[in-house]
Design a protein around this nucleic acid. Sequence first.
RNA 1: GGGGCGUUAGCUCAGUUGGCAGAGCACCGGACUUUUAAUCCGUAGGUCCCGGGUUCGAAUCCCGGACGCCCUACCA
Length: 501
Amino acid sequence: MESDGNQIIALRREKAARYREEGADPFANDFKPDATTAKIRDLYGEKDAEALAEVETEYALAGRILALRSFGNMAFLDLADRTGKLQIVASKKVLGPEAHKDVVKKWDIGDIVGVVGTPTRTKTGELSIMAKSAHFLTKSFRPLPEKWHGLTDMDTRYRQRYVDLIVNPEVKDVFLTRSKVVAAIRRYFVGHDYTEVETPMMHPLAGGATAKPFETYHNALDMPLFLRVAPELYLKRLLVGGLERVFEINRNFRNEGISIQHNPEFTMLEFYQAYAVHTDLMDLTEELMRELVREVHGDDLTLPYAQETIDFSKPFPRLTMEEAVLAANDDLSEGDTRNRDKLAAICKRIGQEVKADWGWGKLLTVVFEETVEKSLRQPTFVHGFPVEVSPLARRNDKDPEIADRWEFFIVGREHANAFSELNDPDDQRERFEAQMKAKAGGDEEAQPFDADYIRALEYGMPPAAGCGIGIDRVVMLLTNQPSIRDVILFPHLRPESGRGE
RNA sequence: GGGGCGUUAGCUCAGUUGGCAGAGCACCGGACUUUUAAUCCGUAGGUCCCGGGUUCGAAUCCCGGACGCCCUACCA
């Protein structure tokens, strides 16, 4: 590592060695805090200096030193724990000359320490703890980033998230919110009589979504395995097994590009409900989204996102893909939305590839993605997806070329995908065969033929609807973060170079 | 994949026409009993991303490479 020759690190190691020489442990674990900085603020935040002077209760706090302002016989340090920061006063008079000298001479910004003391208010009015005893716990060898500019390099922030979390408190808030959101989702589904399940992450066949998988290998079984691209086919096997309402929150892996809204592993919520149709899940998703906004932002159902304000208070509009495409393309008139030639002409005009074996359904979807998707800023459901691009979805009873499927858009991005499930094993077999043909034609993302899934359907899967929601994107939205990397603790990055060994 | 920008002290960044490698903070020494970017005085700290080339002389110019960011294309 780059520590060699670093003077600061060497000096801090020396300080640790000095502790050892004196019989103390620079990595002690003999201190139990009995309070948090938040508790002190809650209890005494409103009390004035006179009232605090009366308080004799001593509190034990532990945390990391984020700042140290030292005077001759007095020092102030900012102590950070999981709940926030609080100032500690280290006075020679109160602490005694030896302990005070330790604080001033041996303690560094970044060290983890414990103090026991009483609440007080300093002359400048800041609530603090007047330390009566000081306990050194953990030496920090590496200096924290500079105090004023802090750590701003995005690459370092992602690679060394631990440092990012120490010095950028709003980062911790994002991940605390993420945790709350996921907990709220669990609460919501459990409250609606769903069962949480965990299905395989390693699949012999990577099905359930049109995506390129990661491949790995099982040595003992001598077989290739794929990291899952979606849990869908396993969750629907559970519907066959009689688990009528299931959900899973877990990682999917797709061997595709990395961008501001794509990480190779991302967290997906999928849920399936027997005897529901796709429109039932629109209602459910609308309610769930409002619940999550409320969880994070309270009862005001609007959300700031970048320069926009997203309004969740009104019913989310629902329009068909054909309506949306018609409205966005003046050169298309009613009745043209299934005209392959007209759609192909638009594709060519907007510079999109048109393959010979693509039907109107695929072309309509391309035109939708290119001309409509980005404009869907407010919460919007788009339904009426072509069967051609929906290999696992149920056909509409009246319009067999359309699947009972919808996607949910906000800020021009897809956030959810849902459909009434195809449970006719013969229809499903034919759809898989069409996918096989596409695969043979060079489509790397076409789904594999899953014979066991067909067998499961042949036992009879209850009519059902299912939905997938990208949790990372939802968290981006709820925490107003521009990049998926800002809501994933350790986003995928290239390995650091020049670190060979 | 295509285009643009960047990489200099632990951190954030300057660096003029090619002429001794710089600042602030952090660190170290000193002063200071109410600071909160503490202040003041002093010291120390460098593979200028890497490898070639041009030149008397390269952080600076040229070529190649690595890494990162932004835009763009594909996927959730």
